[in-house]
Write a protein that binds this DNA or RNA. Structure first.
Lengths: 264, 264
DNA sequence: ATTATCAGATTTGTCTGACAATATCTTGAC
DNA sequence: GTCAAGATATTGTCAGACAAATCTGATAAT
């Protein structure tokens, strides 16, 4: 039901023979994304972005040209172009006339972008990724929380407190994870430094990745909840130094969970 | 000259009369960007993005529709769409059929993106921006440098050293600033944590903004150079704690320069 | 009176086909 | 061998059409 679409441009001739199976698979993958509600260009950006981050097209190489993509996925060139523009906006590639779209060196990628981080997180070695994020959190979160302890407004405090209690009363793990994320992001917002807020994607990514690991021990959840409440209390009482330490304890706990997952 | 832009919700007919002059001005501005080498969609993304960050279209409001942009700037709808897709990729807006493109809340913006940061930096209050970035650097750079001191490879060390010496021998301020940026970014790379690298844009932004302030005192440059060399030495000798302190001294010096500029 | 359903209108989404601009590569002249 | 001019491939830009989604308001049913 999908193969009949291929009718359009059998192209010149060469590409038509060999990659038939591949093309089928590509289409299937794209359809798979599309039915998940996204538009064509979004699904394309997702697919191509994932391939780049995954390493299918290493930095410095040029991607297939627009017409090729358009044939491969049986979509219009406009859709391909819009997808590529999105990836350009994330610094994954640059494109110039006649030369095509070249993958940028990794250290230019906008790794702290939600999508890019998502593609990056789905890389083969998740544990390594998690450890990198955790190291980053060790740098950011204690200081951000200390700032929050001194600068938070009452509204911000209320958000933090609410997220914390909702973590405790959540009845599903998904619900709890959502509140957990909200808790940490609220702290970043309360830090009073706008530049810290975008780093919330890192926390989101960590917790989403961790999602598969936890659930096991009830005691773990209980202890983690205590650690969160400690942090909430430090911010409420405006104790920056204590807040720093409380956050470090929580991160250490998270590290431990990751470590246990790694040794399984 | 900003209040007349507010023609938006004038709705169906009112908007047609008044903004004739504006349209001219808009076109002129766009041409101005275009002759600076960029493509149409890039120039458009720049213009619209800047307007959003500047606050012309506050979060939650709906932008003019695609046809309106296309008329205003006398470009094709495709170009507008590609520009908007770029801004979507930076989380500045979301667009849905029939409802239009809505500006996202500020805390969803990808503030650590190079372009967004650039637009943000050109806001009315540069000093405030600089102070925010500096606070962020205080959090990140000492730790990143400490990590670099323990983990740097020989190649990475060479890069750092080279950038440092080139800072010293630079004959133009622009050259020096470039080497300065390269120095700090090399340290981030050497930290061994990939997530730190994208934060280089912050340093780049700071130094670019500072560009207008310095030059004055030769002694300042000399002292700053010493501070950089201290950092280089700490990394070379693998002294993380000393590196942390050296970076804090440099940041304090930068703060002082900013403070002096502020009081003028 | 409130809710449910449907028709119409508006805006983005997608496709198509054409031509322009640009950079690379090739060919030819010197 | 070097340099210049042209061929060529690829993105950039444009115009116009239709599809899909969703908001609005009107009408009908409970």
């Amino acid at each position: 039901m999908a193969e009949d679409r291929r009718g359009r441009a059998a192209g010149t001739e060469a590409a038509a023979e060999a990659p038939v199976a591949d093309v089928r698979a590509d289409e299937a993958r794209l359809r798979g994304f599309r039915i998940s509600g996204a538009s064509v260009h979004a699904a394309l950006a997702n697919e191509i972005g994932q391939r780049i981050v995954r390493g299918d097209y290493p930095p410095g190489t040029t991607l297939p040209n627009e017409q090729k993509w358009s044939q491969t996925f049986d979509v219009s060139r406009s859709a391909v172009r819009e997808a590529i523009k999105m990836l350009m906006a994330k610094n994954l590639l640059v494109s110039r006339p006649k030369v095509g779209s070249r993958v940028e060196p990794r250290d230019r990628w906008n790794l702290l972008d939600r999508d890019v981080l998502g593609w990056y997180a789905s890389a083969p070695d998740r544990l390594k990724f998690l450890r990198t994020v955790q190291e980053f959190r060790y740098i950011i979160e204690p200081e951000a929380t200390a700032l929050a302890a001194t600068r938070r407004s009452e509204e911000q405090m209320a958000e933090i407190t609410q997220a914390c209690t909702e973590m405790g009363t959540a009845r599903f793990l998904s619900e709890r994870t959502e509140a957990d994320t909200r808790f940490h992001v609220a702290i970043l917002r309360a830090s009073g430094n706008e530049l810290l807020v975008p780093l919330g994607v890192l926390i989101e990514s960590t917790l989403d990745n961790l999602f598969g690991f936890i659930t096991r021990e009830v005691n773990d959840l209980k202890y983690a909840q205590e650690l969160h409440e400690d942090i909430e209390k430090c911010i409420r009482l405006q104790r920056p130094e204590a807040a720093r330490k409380a956050v470090r304890r929580l991160l250490a706990n998270t590290d431990e969970i990751i470590g246990r997952a790694a040794s399984r």
